[in-house]
Structures are given as C-alpha cells and as structure tokens.
Design a protein around this nucleic acid. Structure first.
Lengths: 132, 132
DNA sequence: GTAAACCTTCCAGTGCGCTGGAAGGTCAAG
DNA sequence: CTTGACCTTCCAGCGCACTGGAAGGTTTAC
C-alpha cells in the first residue's frame, strides 16, 4: 500500500504521514524498488489509533509515549490511565480558566452597554476594557 | 523613565516592551542622548491597558486594532463591543469543545477501570484509547 | 577606578502540528 | 510517446507571544 492510499484510508495527508514517521510515531516502512514507501495494512490501524488519541486531546509526544510502550510488547494500560487522568486535569483546569474569562467578558459586555462614547475622555484608551 | 523602570511598573519584561513597540502597540518613545528609550508616564497606562485587554483573552492584533482607533482620537466603543461579542463567542465555542473532550476522557477513564492488561491482545495498541 | 547593572541592536529559537513548495524520479492510461 | 498523477527529498514557514543570547555602549554605586 503506497502512501497516498494509506493517507486516503486514514483520512490524513501524505505529508502528515511522513511527518509522523519523522516524529517517531510510525516506523519507516519497507520501500519498493523505486524507493516508494510500501505500507502493510496494519499501518492504517496505527494511524487510526493516533487519530483517536489525538482526538481525545493527547499531544503527539504523549501518543508517542504510549506507542513506545506498546512497541516493547507491554500493554500500556497503566501508563494510559495515568495519562488520561493527567490530561483530564489539564482539560478541567482550562475549562475553569475559560469560564472565568467568559464571566469577565460578560462583565465587559455589560459595561459596554452602560457607557457611551461620550463617557470616554480623550486621555484614556477605553473605559470598557480598562480603567487605566 | 527608562525601559527597565517602565517594565517594573507595568509588570512586564523590557524585552516584551520592545516587542510591543516593534508590533505597533506602543509608539517609539524619544531617546536620551545615549540612545536609551525615555518613556513618558502615560506609557504605563497604555501597557496596563494592553495587559487588561490581553487578560480578557484578546489577541495582540485585536488590541492593536482598538489602540489604532483610539489613536485617531475616536472612542473605540463600538469596535470594542463588537470585538467582545466575537471573542465571547469564540470562548463559548472553545468551552463547548472542552466539555465534550472532558466527557470523552471520562469515558476513557471509565473504560480504563474496566479493562485489564490481559484484555489487550498483542496485536492491538490499546483497547482503552481505541478499538482500532 | 572599577564592577555591576542597565541599555542598545540583531538574529534566532521556543512549542505544536503540520503545510507549502521546489526539483526531481516513476508509473499508469490513452 | 506524452500527459498527468503519484512519489521522493529537503528546506521553509505558519501563528502566537514572546524569550534568549551575543556583542557592544552607558550609567551608577562604591
């Protein structure tokens, strides 16, 4: 299977697949006599896994870690559980930050309704965004 | 006021202030005979404004837009209101995405409790993260 | 007088996950 | 036989907001 076929199967671009190889996520496949990459069918599974893990928000570095453990023959369960927990924490942290930002933006929007252009002196920048 | 003093006042690094000048957020100040930047006290206000606006999550490009309007002498109220609304939408969109990711991660975590290492055949990568 | 702290410019790199393009070789169809 | 789709490598850049460092000049404190 050549790279274009694999790309179509996995729903990625050929560029991305070469990039994953370079990044150590995908082993370098054998080549045809002409030098074309020639992938076994299992490569599609690996790419699907990468896609699923990336969709869950794991970084390529984290995915590489999981794959590296799997490639030793060990099931990566414990590592994956730890990773999921850590990532869940990061996501929750980020959600909390964004909720706070949302409250702040709603406050600014409220303020924008209350002050008119005439309320801003020429010396200040914007009474809505800052009192500086 | 020299750049280090301004940096300390504004809670930024001197590097960042030079970067803001380069990025068109802050006018180039006059120089001392030795070539040192010599800021008027108002520069601190402008930096405080930039800080507040950035804290609300606006990009430097957006902040530059607000400042550019203000620098024409116009109050930027209408522009700012529009900007806040657009940014609020982006934030809400992102929150929704992260909430979905959180649900997905909680599902994966649940699955991780249910499957053991023995459940993963050597041919698959990780039954927790993907069925590929 | 000298050492440390401060300033200047310029160039380069960070992290992340790709993407674009150039210059060339190969393969399949008509 | 040619056209066009496909493949190869390599190098560069994106967007974002800085940050680091080198190599040099200046000011300040003791």
């Amino acid at each position: 299977m050549r790279i274009g076929t694999l790309a179509a199967t996995a729903g990625l671009s050929a560029k991305t697949i070469r990039f994953y190889e370079e990044a150590g996520l995908l082993a370098a496949p054998p080549r045809t006599p002409a030098g074309y990459r020639d992938y076994p069918a299992e490569a599609a599974n690996r790419l699907a896994f990468i896609r699923d893990a990336a969709a869950a928000g794991l970084s390529l570095a984290e995915i590489r870690g999981v794959l590296a453990i799997r490639d030793t023959g060990q099931p990566p369960c414990q590592h994956v559980t730890t990773l999921i927990e850590a990532h869940l924490q990061r996501v929750e942290q980020r959600i909390a930050e964004l909720l706070a930002t949302r409250v702040a933006l709603q406050g600014l929007h409220q303020r924008a309704q209350e002050v008119g252009p005439a309320d801003c002196g020429p010396a200040e920048i914007c009474r809505i965004l800052s009192t500086a």
